[in-house]
Amino acid sequence: MAYLIAEEGRSTDDKQTVIEITADAQNPAYWRDVWEHRELFQLLVWRDLVVRYKQTLIGFSWSVIRPLTMMIVFTIVFGGFAKLPSNDTPYALLVFTGLLPWMFFATTFSEAANSVIANTPIVSKVYFPKIILPFSSIIVGTVDFVISFCLYFLLAVYFKHPPGWNVMFLPVCIILLCLFVMACGTWVAVLNVRYRDFRYLLPVVLQLGAYMSPVGYASSVVPGKWGIIFALNPMVGIIDGFRWSLLDAGTPFPTFSFAVAVGFTVVCLIPGVRYFTRSESRFCDDL
């Protein structure tokens, strides 16, 4: 569907937008349309935030309780029972630095992947650039992320293990994480509309991913010969990047795995977004 938007007419009162609707899947004015729908974007984010904890007893406390319980369980199982090494940092902090990016990834990825289907009532009734849907899922997830982050700093103070100068690198990791979610989210959101298989596949992938990524353990426990294969998972580089920035444990920067994450994101993001914007005019046919 293409919309060639042109302002016509000479006098100001005669100025009316002319929209062309055709079968073409390309819309040259797409990003301008996105900008014009920024208020809708804000409201969708606001809606998802407000609605999320409606009719719950403890509301936003869930954003604190979820990462905390995960941290406690992982610390007991991996640090306590399995006695995995923690590279001289408190095990709880090691786990939490893994949980920060992982939980953000798991929630926003699945929210973004389901964002089109979840918004069927509006997608099938009014026009707007649909890319704001997966994008708003990421912004909504950021709120939890910020809460978890504050929690981390409290814990770091409690364990007397504050981050050092490496923390300057953290924003790069966070941006990479967001772009990585966007890259995965746009692909799966489109495929999910077409093939509902992804709805069932996704929880499985995320569950396996939590064990195949160094969330509850340090990457250093992975035996050398498996290290390369292990690091092909882009989340390894991102999590290790977070750890390197926050823990300051004197370990070398995870160059290889981080490069894999950057490479994967670069290769997938632009085609993913393009795939999404070209498919969106057909969403309604499949919903």
Binding site: Y3, T17, V18, I19, E20, I21, T22, A23, A25, K125
Partner: peptide, 14 residues
């Protein structure tokens, strides 16, 4: 209303 793309044809809306 631009919710669905037509298979063929053209519409201009002012």
């Amino acid at each position: 209303s631009r919710v669905m793309a037509p298979t063929t044809g053209k519409i201009s809306v002012r």
